[in-house]
Design a protein around this nucleic acid. Sequence first.
DNA 1: GGACGAACTTGACATGTGACAAGTTTACGG
DNA 2: CCGTAAACTTGTCACATGTCAAGTTCGTCC
Lengths: 190, 190
Amino acid sequence: MSSSSRPEILRATRTLIAKNGAQVSLAEVASEAGVSRQAVYMHFGSRAGLLVALVRNMDEEAGIRQKLERALLREDPVEAFRQFVKGWLRYAAEIQPVASMLFAAREIDPAAAKAWEDRSRELRAGFRAATVRLGKAGMLRDGLSATSAASLSWAICSVPVVEQLALDQEWSKDRVARQLTEAALSAITG
Amino acid sequence: MSSSSRPEILRATRTLIAKNGAQVSLAEVASEAGVSRQAVYMHFGSRAGLLVALVRNMDEEAGIRQKLERALLREDPVEAFRQFVKGWLRYAAEIQPVASMLFAAREIDPAAAKAWEDRSRELRAGFRAATVRLGKAGMLRDGLSATSAASLSWAICSVPVVEQLALDQEWSKDRVARQLTEAALSAITG
DNA sequence: GGACGAACTTGACATGTGACAAGTTTACGG
DNA sequence: CCGTAAACTTGTCACATGTCAAGTTCGTCC
């Protein structure tokens, strides 16, 4: 058995979440993937583990990391920040259903909490790279360090906010991305 | 049986959440309240129903609605917005554990989703009262209606953001409130 | 070709949520 | 004092998550 059913399980999960939203049981996933329920536990340990793996999988498929790193190469620090944030927000809107499930699972599952924490830290590091450059250009608000500005802008642009806005205003993903980008920029610059 | 055990169940829930966080089963709650598990279902219908009732209960106890309405009485629209938002944020930090549980429950429980939605609408109306006045004073950013500004600032000041920042930065509740207030204000004004 | 190990299956069990049915207690109005 | 209705109990069931144990089926290495 050289081929693992892991990718098949991930595919099945995505299909079912796309179809049914959060109401997806692991038994359904297993059935859709054509494996036993236990196989899911073998590969992913828990529901949260499956969601974490799914997010990572989507990250890689979208090449989001490279895209965001490329955004940071811009010379103008403001443009670098804008492109970075906009890139993240557009992607955030896409993964929102899965990310929200993970965010919710975090409440009761310590493993999910840790996974979310790790992911947050990574992204915050990206935001920080952008805010450090804004700081060097003397553009951050008084009393705001690059680190604090990174936390602040990251929190403002996090998945729950994107979700909330999408529901509230029925804005397009693009409109949400544009509005939040400008909001984050004004929030941390003078 | 003139006295209902409803308040007792709410009290027990609060106690247990304060002690154990989100890992609280309804059986534990019932036991702590000295009633049967079914009694909890009689009064609140579901786990989500219990959380909704608990949040409403805390709202009333804190008199948050009156406090926020009072903030809106300020003459200066900027000060009214600041006081309103700061008032909300300080309270949000207090109810954060319960509110986060409700937010998470929303993913799988339609009743929780609706309850959250209702609550959001109420608060957004408050934000809107503040942004309308900013709009009349010509202080909103170009292309931003009072309604959009309300959604935006409300999303930026929502419970998950408060939670994220508190975790990220280990800022005090007050510091989170101050930073987010200024962030929201800059985000919607020119 | 036979032993070994990884991937996977079947089956069982513990715990939590939520629904349902059939009782019991208690206050209260007639 | 009796009947009724609300509040509550006990007991049971379906279903989801997560864990454990004992198989089976492969490919692979010697």
